[in-house]
Amino acid sequence: MPPWVDFQPFIVSGLALGGVYALSGVGLVVLYRATGVLYLAFGAVGALGALTAWSLGRVGAPGWVTWLVCIAVAALVTLGYGALFGPALSKRDPLIKAVATIGLTLILYGAMDLLWTTSGGQARSLALPTDNGGFSIGQVQVTWTQVIALAAGVVITVGTGAFLRFSKLGTAMRAMANDREITATLGVPVRKVEAAAWLGCGVLAGVAGLLLADLVALDATTLTFLVISSLAAVLIARLRSITVTFVAAIVVGLLHDLLTPITALTNYRDMTPFVLAAVALLVMPRSQVLAQSREEA
């Protein structure tokens, strides 16, 4: 086992990664609670936004414009999908709704492979200016991007919790999570509420795509499938609790990176999300999670 000092840099990188996983996980949970859709295209739309931002940067667009475009692209694609297919899918089984988003994932993935090909060995990157600054904790270098990633996870989790609890729109989303038909009967404009949920999820996908493109890689395959780590956190929270999602995402990110210096386990660290999700689903009493969800509601 390596000495404690060897683990310290991995705590920083793990927290940053966990923060982005939390950001993604919260987006997935909010959308699921409002619409019943498990949005498996979350990573793909983020990747599309990030690659679009990269292309704009190549033609001289200012950095802030490319970041906004990244978020806008992800938000619009997600909103467009929700507006187009949401109504038709609203009465279908959640399984069908989730599978439908795989279709979107594959379409986007194929399009990205075509538009941003790697057949000539192309390597792309999206660096944020916050990479150039930071501070040291002992011998550990921390970049502002890592701080932002963790802070974004915290802020989004707290903000979303407050939004769902205190805002009219959030209350409507929670109502729809319980029963869409009754909520509609009570006069809640369910289409608008769903559209807001799709838009919010898309915005979070864009933000996550931007941060992950910087922290991990600007690559369609990597970003598309990175949603799996967030999915593990969401599964641990059983698609309900944003607090559990946040904690699980941080644990996934931390544990994943802390296994890196342990030679015997380092090649198995990518299993972390799945192992944690499987253990949580098997061990954690379902009633406990639902009770926590009700408390949050």
Binding site: L95, V234, L235, L239, A277
Partner: peptide, 24 residues
């Protein structure tokens, strides 16, 4: 607001979790 999930929705959610795990 008290969250009360209908049985059908709970079952659907459980199936979705299983699907999500499989997809993952």
């Amino acid at each position: 607001m008290k969250a009360h999930m209908p049985v059908s929705r709970v079952l659907s959610a459980r199936r979705t979790i299983v699907l999500a795990a499989a997809v993952a």
